[in-house]
Amino acid sequence: MRRFLQFPERPLASTEGECGMRFAEKVVIVTGGARGMGASHARGLAAEGARVAICDVLDDEGETLSGELARAQYWHLDVTSEESWQSASWASQTASATSRASGGCGA
């Protein structure tokens, strides 16, 4: 018999219609965040209170998405390039955050 983890059911938003804030005061870096699953995660995390760093090589899509989200900013980042990581200007900005999380979605 398989055993599955059981998580308590809890709504993403309160009954008063306010957004949940499970990621309030956190910075989340989403690689591959300009479209597809990455964009979906960026939207959900922003809705939950996170400050989202959308990182991708698709500049137009990333800029458009960051313009749609109040708590997000786009940075060009090629995750396969060490030079791209070293020159990322956003690293110093996210380093000062008290809490961080990261996630990646890419091809």
Results as ranks from 00 to 15, higher is better:
residue 81 S to N: 05
residue 48 E to W: 07
residue 88 A to Y: 06
residue 98 T to E: 10
residue 83 E to G: 13
residue 84 S to F: 02
residue 94 T to L: 07
residue 28 V to H: 01
residue 63 E to Y: 03
residue 20 G to P: 00
residue 63 E to Q: 07
residue 89 S to W: 05
residue 64 T to S: 11
residue 51 R to N: 12
residue 62 G to A: 01
residue 48 E to M: 10
residue 102 S to G: 13
residue 61 E to N: 03
residue 66 S to R: 13
residue 64 T to H: 12
residue 51 R to W: 12
residue 75 W to P: 01
residue 27 V to R: 03
residue 26 K to E: 06
residue 62 G to L: 01
residue 94 T to P: 05
residue 23 F to C: 02
residue 5 L to T: 11
residue 81 S to D: 15
residue 84 S to E: 02
residue 56 D to R: 02
residue 70 A to Q: 13
residue 54 I to S: 12
residue 49 G to C: 09
residue 6 Q to A: 13
residue 92 S to D: 12
residue 9 E to N: 08
residue 63 E to K: 10
residue 92 S to T: 07
residue 107 A to W: 04
residue 28 V to S: 01
residue 61 E to P: 00
residue 53 A to Q: 13
residue 4 F to K: 11
residue 64 T to K: 15
residue 26 K to F: 04
residue 14 S to P: 01
residue 59 D to A: 10
residue 66 S to P: 08
residue 50 A to C: 10
residue 104 G to K: 09
residue 9 E to G: 05
residue 35 R to T: 14
residue 70 A to L: 06
residue 30 V to P: 00
residue 44 G to C: 05
residue 67 G to S: 09
residue 19 C to I: 00
residue 40 S to T: 15
residue 79 V to I: 15
residue 82 E to Q: 10
residue 8 P to I: 09
residue 30 V to R: 02
residue 63 E to D: 04
residue 30 V to M: 01
residue 50 A to P: 13
residue 7 F to M: 12
residue 17 G to N: 06
residue 67 G to K: 08
residue 82 E to H: 09
residue 103 G to R: 10
residue 96 S to N: 03
residue 1 M to L: 09
residue 45 L to D: 09
residue 98 T to I: 06
residue 92 S to A: 08
residue 62 G to R: 02
residue 72 A to T: 00
residue 44 G to S: 11
residue 34 A to C: 07
residue 42 A to C: 12
residue 38 G to Q: 06
residue 23 F to I: 00
residue 58 L to Y: 14
residue 103 G to E: 08
residue 38 G to S: 08
residue 72 A to W: 01
residue 61 E to W: 02
residue 53 A to F: 13
residue 19 C to P: 01
residue 91 A to Q: 14
residue 49 G to W: 10
residue 91 A to I: 14
residue 59 D to S: 10
residue 15 T to N: 02
residue 86 Q to P: 04
residue 81 S to R: 06
residue 65 L to H: 03
residue 62 G to V: 03
residue 40 S to G: 14
